[in-house]
Design a protein around this nucleic acid. Structure first.
Lengths: 415, 415
DNA sequence: CTCAATTCGTTCAGGCTCTGGACTAATTAA
DNA sequence: TTAATTAGTCCAGAGCCTGAACGAATTGAG
């Protein structure tokens, strides 16, 4: 339970230092060995040795001599090599499947979204279709001479990550599905084990890497589609809580006298600001089952109404924004983020919802903190979670490149 | 912003491994070197060398041979030596000051609480009085042959921990006070730098070490006195958020139409479940300025009424419990703790407040998580934060014993 | 009582990784 | 052409962990 401090051996030391140097290269590229020695505190000897190992693994590249205008021998520029290793991100959502291949240089090399009504299908069938998508993505990566180092799947539900199982995914109708096993069975063996994570967490990570990223600092990323979820990122890491269920913003109660929720509570945020609730309040049919599947599908009608100034639609969105702002007020008091990021359906509705969100937020977060958190809107599309999943694989490679050096054989004695 | 991976050298490796072994000794004491080699994965040689270093520093002790009933050479039992090093915990609160000396074996060696109305006094005077208390504590430690390795101060307000400053402590009337400098100036130099932290965070840590501790896992510890605060502990570590203001449970809005709060919001939990609000609702005068200062002072009248079955008092506490439960519901959804611990004034009121808290909590935390969080009541007294502060010093020694080995000289290149 | 078996802890050679000074390489300024 | 400057490599050395061998202390069988 207590945070474990693990033994360190020479191998561990080497592995960590490889990560240190790789990280510094990524942050400052192109960069010379001499400068790396400066910023890391290593000797030039050590830096040379570490860079050589990274170069052998294809993670890093020499770009040729560079003179800085100063005198002295010109430096050899070292950069991350984006052309050898990539991460695969996968996403299962209610009305689509998505795959995304991201190279070490954080360039998207392949991206594919397939509309599919996954509510109507068996979990096995869905994972089967996802595996097909993954195989095509791996093939596409291979054609670009990229090796896929690992895969992460984004799933809309509560997970038992250690066991590789989906506990419940209410919007998919799943219950205790061994998604991890099903997926690994269908995939060629990768250097890193396949992993899964909550869609909201991964969408938040997608924002970190592809949105306004580093400027955001610590933030809460709201990512509603059918349900309403939030990914909490503190210092670049996802906060998961004790069992991985942190960030369940959708079931924060915003109106104790409100309508009952499937979760057993009353007046959950999801019942007021979820996609179906907003559509209903705006007088639109619940179109989730119609042909316009895929990201942003069911919302287009609502956006049209809003653009036309339809009063009922506007008030529905305002009411949702107010409820969202109040729930976020609690999140701000409890989690102390720098920024709130609106993603999912709320990024499309932001022009109309933001004022209400901001007002409610300001009313609930007092002078305790010096500045109220900023409110930002995500510019990422519907497959933010797939992007985040791929980015997570890339991040893992960057944080422990040694795993790719030892050619697949697991590192000794990790306890 | 991103979590930094720091370079590892031989010295770092050694330092971490010392911590590994010391931690394992603490967890399993008395324990043989052979068993330590088993559980850590180190060779017997390495364990012997690490234990020898810890023994030289006085952190560890050999207890003589022990036969396990099995055959073979009997083992030499190794245990944490609680008789050489200690941590000092200090606490400034509205109506008292406290100090506490805790040895490495987690035994309390000295404990002193002084009632004092700190609202009426200059910050310099308060810190001065605290320094006196600290000096007496250090002297008391010295008489028991204990070296005080470091000190941590618990303060009821928002802090700039890096700068050693109190930003605001509304209940003390402090604003931008350089508490860290004032304290270090008055104290003899210690091996570890003096540090400060929020009272709620440290009270939560106190619960971890002295309450039901390890069983709690991840938990939210409510610690209201004048204000209402919460310390969030995940896997044995305090969660602080981006600026260290996480856990501001007192300013979660529980009634948007409620009374205005000093923080600028309306209907904050503190306005309904804070000590003054409860006393007022129960028809009691606000006695915080009277002579009954010190922990639990102003509450005794209320507890008497509750024991007498006074309907007005009972309903006031029920209403507070309901509000607290609703705010905690949001905390559970966002933070996903195993347990909620009621401390501060709520531990005294628990018999009457718990049913309401539990009911409200159950209504706001649905089936998303498999089991609702347990509700526990702290058995710690008013100086829980001072205990937690001292425990934090001890924890730091345990997590990095090497700092005490190198005789005060700071370790090289920590960047 | 003696000897084999067993377990504990130490000793010593060896290997991995970082350090630090010396050295070579490549360039600019005089 | 030469001195100065900066980049990167080489090589001996030191710190720390590993692993096999060994002495120490005890139990149980003969």
């Amino acid at each position: 339970m207590r945070n474990e401090i693990t033994p360190v051996r020479h191998g561990t030391m080497r592995a960590r230092n490889l990560a240190v140097v790789l990280g510094e290269i990524s942050r400052r590229q192109p960069v010379s060995r001499a400068r790396l020695a400066d910023v890391t505190g290593f000797t030039k000897t050590t830096v040379s040795s570490l860079v050589a190992a990274l170069k052998d693994a294809g993670l890093v590249r020499e770009d040729g001599p560079v003179r800085d205008g100063e005198r002295g021998r010109p430096a050899t520029a070292v950069s991350v090599n984006g052309d050898r290793v990539a991460g695969l991100g996968l996403e299962v959502n209610v009305d689509y499947l998505a795959a995304c291949v991201l190279d070490l240089g954080r360039r998207i090399r392949h991206r594919h979204i397939v509309a599919a009504d996954n509510r109507a299908r068996d979990p096995e069938r869905v994972i089967g279709a996802l595996t097909d998508l993954a195989e095509r993505a791996i093939a596409a990566a291979g054609e670009q001479d990229l090796t896929v180092a690992g895969a992460v799947v984004a799933l809309p539900g509560t997970l038992d990550r250690a066991g590789g199982r989906v506990r419940t995914a209410p919007n998919l109708g799943w219950r205790d599905v061994a998604a991890g096993d099903l997926l690994t069975a269908g995939l060629p063996p990768l250097a890193l084990p396949a992993d899964q994570d909550n869609e909201a967490n991964l969408a938040a990570l997608g924002e970190l890497w592809f949105g306004d990223g580093p400027e955001l600092g610590s933030y809460v990323h709201v990512s509603g589609e059918i349900g309403v979820g939030a990914g909490i990122v503190v210092d670049g890491r996802v906060f998961r809580g004790a069992h991985g269920f942190a960030g369940e913003l959708g079931h924060v109660v915003v109106d104790p006298a409100g309508p009952p929720c499937a979760c057993g509570g009353r007046g959950c945020l999801e019942q007021v600001a979820g996609q179906e609730a907003i559509l209903r309040a705006a007088g639109l049919p619940d179109v989730t089952a119609t042909s316009t599947a895929g990201p942003d599908g069911p919302l287009s009608a609502l956006v049209t109404l809003l653009n036309d100034g339809d009063e009922r639609a506007l008030s529905a969105v305002r009411r949702a924004g107010d409820a969202l702002g109040r729930a976020l007020g609690a999140a701000v008091n409890l989690l102390d983020p720098d920024t709130i990021v609106l993603g999912g359906i709320f990024s499309a509705l932001a022009p109309w919802a933001c004022p209400a969100v901001e007002a409610a937020l300001a009313g609930g977060t007092g002078v305790v903190r010096s500045a109220p958190p900023r409110l930002a809107v995500s510019r990422l599309g519907g497959d933010a979670a797939a992007l985040g999943a791929a980015a997570l694989v890339v991040e893992r490679v960057m944080n422990d490149p040694a795993r790719l050096l030892t050619e697949g054989s697991p590192r000794p004695h990790e306890r």
